[in-house]
Design a protein around this nucleic acid. Structure first.
Lengths: 223, 223
DNA sequence: AAAATATCGATAAAAAATTACCGATATTAA
DNA sequence: TTAATATCGGTAATTTTTTATCGATATTTT
């Protein structure tokens, strides 16, 4: 109905376009063509054109798209221009790393606080962000109208953290624990699966070794 | 030709199966059916069955698969049983978090050292792993036959880090910097794209807000 | 001013991934 | 011993995603 029928694959590629576009020298490249982007990113040019058509205006034949406009349109489509407040559950190593990562602001994500079950962490700060006890979660979320929760607790307590977030009125969850979370239908879960990435790497490597391809072959195109 | 024609999607799902299988109480569940796994993970049962067929033996009608066998077979397929040494380039927040994460051993990944351009970090340790200057990379990689490099430097120096890794004889690169790396054909790059995950989350959230769906709708099945 | 060219957008074809269907089989229950 | 049932594995149909092709258009060059 609405033109929201954007494929997940496209959605996943948009950030790449964005980072590529941002890496261009502003003054030199007013226009960028789909072909250029595709070549730089190792993609198909038609694919890039189709992706861009979903989120931005028409390009101009012979020239391409206005780079700055593309950046604006992608950012706006992804909601990066509207800062979303988020909280983190689990202030361990990973949680701490995310807490202290300034770059999320660029993606419209603003982490306002962290929660942890560990008494000894409660009350301390990481990069100016306070760590609260789990018992304060609901109150803080509702008071600050926080909509995004990030889970960085160990696998065995992830579902509990998730339930608490849902109870606190969170709408979207970014889950770093290697667990499939059970949530009500109206809650969005985005799984950050580092194990999956690692699996791809590991499997390819294992195969390359098996086939003695290492150091010569190319395992991408194998026909 | 060889039965290696496993799809990338399947590969990405295997770790989920693994973590689910491992979460089962060992004594109670000798057998697991594809249907059970599918339901638990919110997938289609045929899909699960097809995925499993790629990496394990046949299941038994009416019962399903032997859980322990499945675990073993998936782990072995993914190469988790053979420990791979890896190094990290970039000992900042994220690099530190990865360095100190013990869980990678389960995935067959053993991070042996880190490298950083920052003189003040060189010589220090994180979780018993030493931080070396970039100049030592090649020597160490070759001496220890390290095959995997992990990039956790800022975007603007990622390509340089990548080139150094390639020069050091690395075969596979796990890249956390939001940049498309240029590498020779025989080098495998696995992009860890947190921005992409975030994009999915952010876009869905933005849309839900726009459509006033929050708190009632379900945006998964929408027809 | 006209010709050459690079790129666009749309449609069509191809490839890949997901899902549906169905007969076969082994276990459990009657 | 027989019937009922849950699940498997394979084939087929569907859906989604990617890629190829082609006419149109605006810019640059001649």
């Amino acid at each position: 109905m609405n033109p929201k029928a954007i494929s997940k694959q496209t959605l996943l590629r948009l950030p790449s376009y964005l980072s590529y576009l941002k890496s261009l020298p502003k003054d030199e490249c007013e226009y960028v063509s789909a072909t250029t982007i595709a070549t730089a990113l190792g993609l198909n040019d038609v694919q890039v054109r189709k992706d861009l058509a979903c989120v931005s205006k028409k390009g101009r034949p012979k020239l391409g798209y206005v780079a700055e406009e593309l950046i604006r349109d992608i950012e706006s489509f992804l909601g990066y221009d509207a800062l979303n407040d988020a909280i983190i559950v689990g202030a361990g190593r990973l949680g701490g790393a995310l807490l202290s990562y300034e770059g999320f602001k660029e993606y419209g994500l603003n982490i306002v606080a962290a929660f942890d079950a560990d008494e000894s962490k409660v009350g301390t700060e990481i990069c100016g962000k306070k760590i609260f006890p789990l018992s304060k979660m609901k109150e803080l979320c509702q008071r600050m109208k926080v909509r995004i929760g990030i889970i960085t607790v160990p696998a065995h307590s992830a579902q509990k953290a998730c339930d608490m977030l849902v109870d606190s009125g969170i709408y979207a969850i970014w889950n770093f624990a290697p667990v499939h979370l059970k949530v009500p239908d109206n809650i969005l879960v985005q799984q950050e699966n580092m194990a999956a990435s690692l699996a791809v790497l590991s499997a390819h490597l294992a195969e390359a070794i098996k086939n003695n391809e290492i150091g010569k072959g190319d395992e991408e195109n194998d026909k």
